[in-house]
Simulated assay, not measured.
Amino acid sequence: MPAALVGLSHSPLIGKKDPGPEVLARIGAAVDGARAFVRDFDPELVVLYAPDHYNGFFYKEMPPFCLATAANAVGDFGSLSGPLSVDADAAKSLAQGVLDRGIDLTVSARMTVDHGFVQPLEVLFDGIDRVPVVPVFVNGVATPLGPLARIRALGAAVGEAAAALDRRVLFLASGGLSHDPPVPVLDGAPPRVADALIEGHPPTPEQRAKGEQRVVQAGRDYAAGSSTMIPINPGWDNLVLDTFASGSLSEIDDWTVEWMGAEGGGSAHEVRTWIAAYASLAATGPYRVTSRFYEPVPEWIAGFAVTTAHPEGSDR
């Protein structure tokens, strides 16, 4: 099975509070390189690993990961809304293959997704309905969080199951790296906030607009240095990228939830999507990282990275 990988950070603040033109130019060049990589590979199926930000998954039932046989985007932060072009047959085949390999996978027949899923599809494919996709939610926000060995096992099982499809499959990771945005926390939350986090009541347009404006203001404060959020950690971010580049993914099993949060911030666990994607690619054989870009972007409250990879011996 021909396989390839793209890892791409996302941020709801892109286009709303941007860094200076030189930084944007560097990011743009890296993204253009990833787009060219994807065009050259010409995937027949995209397995998209992404987190959620309390738009589709809530504490009423919070799985560690979930595969969708159908998905609809809410359109938060100006991202596209509507149905994703989910390949239901491929999704069902992958789900069965993962379960057959001993991973307790949750399946959704009507997944709600947000900008974490939509942004990479917009960036790389100019839309959410341009390529067959299998969305896989990986929880990176809602505690408690399980060991990273299980995420690596998930990715490996998906990769092995994908090999049986005999299609060109792109494993696409969305999220990370170090960042500490103002995400609500259930423990100690006021009753109204706790109820929203548990039950998932859809916000009114006014409530969504106010919530998004709070995030934009947080980005302004963070960039101005007047925030208590954990700073972006380039050292940790590059350690993560070094680990992916080395192919020594088993080392990730020793990373603890507490260590990741202390080093990378409250939402550093979005890196779990990258772990799953790299484990999927590794399941097809040894791989090589072909491009790597990293830039700390305080305006986006993120260590922003773009990587591409393909199996060893591939001419792509």
Rank of each mutant, 00 (worst) to 15 (best):
P120Q: 03
A142V: 10
V136N: 14
T143R: 11
F137C: 08
V136W: 06
R130F: 00
V138G: 15
V133G: 07
Q119F: 08
D114H: 03
D114V: 06
T143H: 10
G116L: 10
D126H: 11
G116N: 07
V133S: 06
G140R: 11
F125A: 03
P135Y: 10
F117V: 00
Q119M: 15
Q119V: 14
G116K: 08
L124E: 03
P132I: 07
V141L: 15
V133T: 15
E122A: 01
R130T: 12
P132M: 06
N139W: 10
G116Q: 10
G140N: 12
V118G: 04
G127T: 03
G116M: 09
P132L: 06
D126P: 03
I128D: 07
D129M: 04
V133Y: 05
V118N: 03
V141D: 04
N139D: 15
P120Y: 01
V136H: 10
A142D: 10
V138A: 11
G140L: 09
V138Q: 12
V131D: 01
V138S: 14
P120G: 06
E122N: 05
L121D: 04
N139G: 13
V138I: 14
T143P: 08
F137D: 10
A142L: 06
V134K: 07
V141R: 13
E122P: 01
V134R: 11
E122S: 09
G140K: 12
V131R: 03
F137Q: 14
F137G: 07
V134D: 05
V123H: 09
F125Y: 13
G116V: 06
L121E: 06
N139R: 10
E122G: 00
N139M: 05
V123G: 04
P135D: 07
P120L: 02
V141G: 02
A142P: 09
